[in-house]
Design a protein around this nucleic acid. Structure first.
Lengths: 344, 344
DNA sequence: ACGTTGGTGTGAAACGTTTCAGTCAGGTCT
DNA sequence: AGACCTGACTGAAACGTTTCACACCAACGT
């Protein structure tokens, strides 16, 4: 059915070595035979068998990308960045979705190990898994994504999330908000923890204590989680209810926004919201969301570049890249003209 | 560095055949040697080489999924459905993003052919590519996704988009709208064309002509495209301006909604919007979007099942599955209480 | 005592590439 | 004319599995 290099050689009247040369180092073959071989290839509909190449080469021409939630546009943007950088090197990406579940992550890491991928880019689940560690011990390059490496013999690409949380909180404090919620609670993810810490620091510096900070921990970092938190906030007695929220990501912020609107709470007049990640849907929301922007594609691109450099081997130096996030202010946290007029 | 089955055999004092048996048919090996081999595997950190397996087996344990736009949540939901069904069979998915560009699609199809995937699930770009055809001729199962197969020797999984367009338009016509826009124009995609046709039929039946239908064709089927269309609509003279729009997908609808709000056009009071696909962000928009729901995960799941059945070979019958879409009415196309009160 | 059977284990072939040491013809230099 | 190079091509080994025909042995029935 499928023809091999041997069939091509036979058809063109040359040896298999020559066919291989036509494929891989065409300059080493004379014009004439090269053409004969190429005609045979076309006639037979020959397609290289990648498995055989890989077996011979010892490693595949792919890298693995393991993300927490493929349904989160943040990760599809990152994936796009990875894809671009990796394709440019003639490699392909195997995209895996761990769903933040350690056992699913471990299963995918096994698959990637069996595939002999050149390396793995991963946003690990809350606890660093043994599967990941054994991958590294086997010499497979691993780059941590959106998470700082704790030890210096990983590469990692991350964002200064403490600073990001701080930016969001300071912005709200400057606007006069004195009771602030952090929505995203105590998922074990360090990224989230850092965002929380940044918010907490800012609140403490301004108000002297952190009574002014309410921490909500929805079940998941998704739109549904945001709605859940909205319900809770609306249910609070007015005296204790926060007037603004920093959300651990934009999905939560969108859910929260939706729930507020549903309950007739005006955003930003009655309640201000700042999201995190600055996914495209943040700006596209009917009340455009303020958000802490991360360089999503670049995160992916740089991670891929570090991985490729490490995979190449020679004198690779591990780097821990940290990007500075940037606050993008939109309507969801602005004092509206109408509101100002009303108070004036 | 990485150890092979031979190393394991040596360490355990058995033949390579026995190690292979432990891996693939453990019941054919005695309790005692099985344990010895497993200990050796653990001690050496042995991991199967998938390339070698594939080479021997003749095909890999993966399938390819090629989508038009990985950034569109519709496709991530479909991908999730595919992933679930495919994982259940012990296969993996290689996810490829064609960006609606034929050359990128062709490049990925080549990669998939070289990988000897068991089959390909694809939402083809506007024109059916020769690369796809040659893949089929080579005997690789292909399932068309979100697009009806034109000839009966493909499998396909689609939605009755004429009906979907009709549902959306009839809903708006019943609400009294008499000038309707279809946003999504004449991209060459048959899916979009069918949605348009459904809308057109409904409009014609109600108003006797299709003067009442304005067709807008933004540059891309994305949020940005929707904003572009919004700009255009707002710029129309009031006498000709539509009072409602059916959008070719939800991304466009979201962009359109955003632009309307930005220009102070109230949705749904002044302008009603119906999207298509019913992605999660449709319901999460601050003015929740009416949309034509497609069974996104199920689409993916069924496509995967058909593909797997075909790949298994024996007496496979090609099927063209067509799902019925369902209109989900939300605020963006409802007459609001306040509006009714005002007119009363 | 002898064939038969079933449960275990062996060893080599085969999958389709790439790579590398050779071969060979034809040309150039001395 | 001989030595030497260069360019084009060849042929076989090697990569790590799986599979299959075969060997071995103990137990069994006759």
């Amino acid at each position: 059915m499928t023809s091999s290099i041997r069939d091509v050689a036979l058809a063109a009247g040359v040896s298999v070595g020559t066919v291989s040369n036509v494929l891989n180092r065409p300059e080493a073959v004379s014009e004439q035979t090269r053409r004969r071989v190429q005609e045979a290839i076309a006639a037979l509909g020959f397609v290289r068998n990648e498995s055989a190449r890989q077996l011979r080469a010892g490693s595949s021409r792919t890298i693995g990308l393991v993300v927490l939630d493929i349904a989160n546009p943040f990760f599809t943007d990152v994936a796009r960045g990875v894809e671009d950088a990796v394709n440019a090197e003639g490699l392909a990406v195997i995209l895996c979705n761990s769903d933040d579940r350690p056992e699913k992550e471990a299963a995918y890491l096994d698959v990637l190990a069996e595939q002999r991928v050149q390396g793995v880019i991963i946003t690990p689940t809350a606890q660093l898994s043994p599967a990941l560690e054994s991958l590294r011990q086997r010499g497979v390059p691993v780059v941590l994504l959106d998470r700082r490496a704790s030890d210096p013999d990983h590469c990692s690409v991350a964002v200064d999330d403490v600073h990001g949380g701080r930016l969001a909180a300071e912005h709200l404090l400057e606007r006069g908000h004195r009771r602030i919620a952090f929505v995203g609670g105590s998922s074990g993810l360090p990224q989230i923890q850092e965002r929380h810490d940044g918010v907490e620091q800012a609140v403490r510096e301004t108000s002297g204590s952190d009574d002014a900070l309410a921490v909500l921990a929805p079940a998941a970092l998704t739109v549904a989680g945001g709605r859940e938190a909205g319900e809770l906030i609306v249910g609070m007695p007015a005296s204790r209810r926060p007037t603004a929220a920093v959300c651990a990501n934009d999905l939560i912020a969108l859910g929260l926004l939706q729930e507020m609107v549903r309950h007739g709470v005006r955003v930003p007049d009655d309640f201000a919201i700042v999201g995190y990640d600055d996914i495209d849907y943040a700006a596209a929301a009917a009340v455009p969301l303020s958000s802490v922007r991360k360089p999503r594609q670049e995160l992916g691109r740089r991670a891929a570049e570090l991985l490729i450099d490490e995979a190449r081997g020679q004198d690779h130096l591990h780097e821990q890249l940290v990007f500075e996030p940037q606050l993008v202010v939109r309507e969801s946290s602005m004092v509206r003209r109408s509101a100002r007029e009303r108070t004036a």
